[in-house]
Design a protein around this nucleic acid. Structure first.
Lengths: 213, 213
DNA sequence: TTTAATAAGAAACGCAAAGTATCTAAGGAG
DNA sequence: CTCCTTAGATACTTTGCGTTTCTTATTAAA
């Protein structure tokens, strides 16, 4: 290849590299994700990549990062359980694709690169469209009278993603519908009911009063 | 080194290799865990290791496996919440050491080696001393009248380990006491209370009746 | 328009570790 | 005492990392 097209620079080049990285991740997975292959696919060379990212982990996270802003989710079936099933299913679909392998692979390296771990941590635990959707679903259930008014701590709002991710990571297999049902029926619905009982302390999180009009 | 001591064979040799592997994991972590280093430390050579295990992942899992039968845990403070805190703390201590890095590292490779994933999966999700301890703690709380009689699904019994592991894996940082408190107060106690409400279906798992002798 | 700074891209390097192949000799089993 | 398994040494090929050096296209400045 004697450099057929003109040289790309700046963000154009960066986009091409990240697109190539994402394609590589999709094809060979993080396990065989190599800088060399990305460079070849992007039609550039290793130094160009190393000038921008420190290694595999950062590059993979960057490639993943551009794909994160996805379609929002807002199930509204009229029944709490159905909403939750939809929510968990949606989460599982998103988690199961490439993400799990990336997360696991990156984590394996994150112990040596604290800054990478930090990027990953903030991305996994912060507020997200999903936590918002959880809040909305719960609020609607409360409004319908399906749940007593409750306080939803951030941790509880995160829980669906945490549960699904944990499942996906430890099983290495796409999460089945049966598993989702279990997570909803055995864990999350009881958790919500427990949060809604008057016994709870309820010091933190966003209160969801009955009157949500 | 001109082979000072006599040659080891069979299980003696295997033990020496696994001990060396474990020591390596403790010192350099899974990220820099190499077959060569293990061979050198064990005073043997690579082929000997490759004759027994297929690669890093299997060797690491095998080394880890020998250490798993640990001291059992059976907190009995007289109060459910304190028991749970003790349980979660114990779990976090176990998880935080080398294990998280091994799990993350192995998972990163497991996608290419389904048999490895299967080993890992069974070890992480099956019944364990911990799930038994959870059952005992809950049973005692029920016996004391702290909880209504409830059915504890396997998934709920697994949850403490899942929650702590998830925390450890996604944060890459030793789980803090504050986090443990949150997990207990915001997730697990509400979950148990929710399971104890009459609303629950309660079709599976081991029922914990009030009358535990 | 000419010139200088910037950065892309090519090529090659040394390094580390994977995984394999070959050979030797040790220490059981008979 | 002999045979057979296999430990252990050595060396090799491969792959990918991360770096260095150099050329040259492109952009910005003069």
């Amino acid at each position: 290849m004697a450099e057929p097209r003109s040289r790309r620079r700046g963000s154009e080049l960066e986009s091409a590299i990240l697109d190539a990285a994402w394609a590589e991740l999709g094809e060979v997975g993080y396990g065989r994700f190599t800088i060399e292959a990305v460079a070849a696919r992007a039609g550039t060379s290793k130094p160009v990549i190393y000038r921008r990212w420190t290694g595999r982990a950062e590059l993979a996270l960057a490639a993943w990062g551009r794909r994160v802003p996805v379609e929002p989710i807002a199930p509204d079936t009229g029944a709490l359980r159905d909403d939750l099933i939809a929510l968990f299913t949606w989460t599982a679909k998103r988690v199961n694709s490439v993400m799990t392998e990336i997360v696991a692979g990156v984590m394996g390296e994150a112990f040596r690169h604290p800054e990478v771990a930090e990027i990953l941590r903030s991305r996994l635990t912060g507020p997200s469209p999903l936590t918002e959707a959880v809040g909305a679903v719960v609020a609607r259930a409360v409004a319908r009278g399906e749940l007593e008014p409750l306080t939803l701590p951030h941790r509880a709002a995160r829980a669906p993603l945490d549960l699904v991710r944990n499942e996906s990571m430890t099983c290495g297999v796409p999460t089945s519908d049966e598993t989702i049902t279990e997570l909803v029926d055995d864990i999350y619905l009881p958790l919500l009911r427990g949060l809604a009982t008057p016994t709870g302390p309820g010091a933190e999180g966003s209160t969801v009063p009955r009157d949500v009009s």
